[in-house]
Amino acid sequence: MNLDINQTWNQHVVKKGNKSIVLEIIKNKSPISRADIASLTNLNKGTVSSLVNELISENLIYEKGPGESTGGRRPIMLLFNASAGYSIGIDIGVNYILGILTDLQGEIILEKKISVHQLGYSEMMEQVIDIISYLKKNIPESRYGLIGIGIGVPGIVHKNGTVLIAPNLNWKNAPLKEMIEDQFHVPVMIENEANAGAYGEKIFGAGQTSDNIVYVSAGIGIGVGLIIDGHLYQGNKGFAGEMGHMTINASGEKCRCGNIGCWELYASEQALIQKALESGIAREQASLESLIEKAHHSDPAAIKLFTEVGKMLGVGITNIINTFNPQQIIIGNRMASAEQWLREAVEQTIKENLLWFFQDNLSLEFSHLSSYSASLGMTAFSIENFLKIDLTAENK
């Protein structure tokens, strides 16, 4: 039977301290014995045994064994119980909404994706609530049921969960966190979708072995998520990463944000489609998918378009590398599906414009999580919030 989450509202199962350390070790290194936990944490065996018993009673870990002997009695092994609870991650795009249900290891159990077109805030929220309700209804029987909801939004998100502005959605001061918490009565986390994508790639995808990452979310707009020293960098109030709106053409077009010559006007899915319409390559029904299909059939005009947009992606990325000197660049969101026609142009532009010492030990990757980077990142935030452990520790 699912636990009534209202009984544990804002009271997490695992408190900060030794118990969270033990749980983190078991989650990241299971199967593992009590003796090995004591050795790794420098806690005495009695303390470890007591904490393990608490975690077993809370259904967060379980015993399995015995393991291999190192000379004495074969030890009982401990494993993390990923099915003790479930998280929902939502990725709100300009033209889609993706929702996923995962266990506590981030394994996707169920998903639902819909296409949307120029919906207002209220209509968009109706669709989000429908998707969450569908996923929640299908949660397997578990001790804790739904432990949290994470929502990624293409806009500037205050740390209090309010979406201050999302230019491509025409949202301003949207109280998203408050509304979803009132509806579902579980902890809700709201984050910029590029930050969520960066975190998703760090925990589950291409960034697992890097500590300094720039994640470029290239969809209708462009956002940037930054992983610095292994942790998400959010800035003073959570606004870091709005580099899609850095000016790369001071005499260029006006962006929806009010600025002139923003990067996303030249290097996004929106830019690609606009170029296709202006050049006559596509008609009113132009889409990323239709242009990829043309490129697959060796259409030279479509391939040229991808090359042009790839060069502009490379220009912005070069500026970011000059600022942050990362180990890794990861290009994600919908434009990542066009890697075959973007990669060479992006790499060439970076090579031609970046000083050589910035290029040393720098890798360029396209998302390993396909369209799931942001939604998985949001489930990771919720899981981390519930368990009170550092998920990035798994990759160190």
Rank of each mutant, 00 (worst) to 15 (best):
E54W: 08
M335Q: 07
G205E: 09
R73F: 06
P75Q: 03
L232C: 08
A336R: 07
A380R: 01
Q105R: 14
I383K: 06
I320Y: 06
F324H: 06
I383D: 13
S20M: 09
A267D: 11
K177R: 10
G120V: 01
D130C: 01
F80H: 11
K159M: 14
S83N: 15
P140F: 10
A166W: 05
L364S: 03
N325P: 01
I131T: 11
S371R: 01
R283A: 15
N319I: 03
D91H: 11
I292K: 02
A206F: 08
N95R: 03
I330L: 04
K172I: 11
Q270H: 14
I76D: 11
P167H: 03
V48F: 13
E63Q: 07
A267E: 10
L277K: 12
S115M: 05
G377H: 02
K64D: 14
T307V: 04
T70W: 08
E264P: 06
N10V: 02
Q208V: 14
E352S: 09
Q348A: 12
E178W: 03
R34A: 15
L135K: 00
N319L: 11
I222L: 06
P75G: 12
N95W: 00
V48C: 14
Q118T: 09
N322M: 12
E191A: 08
G221L: 09
A206S: 14
W356Y: 15
C257M: 00
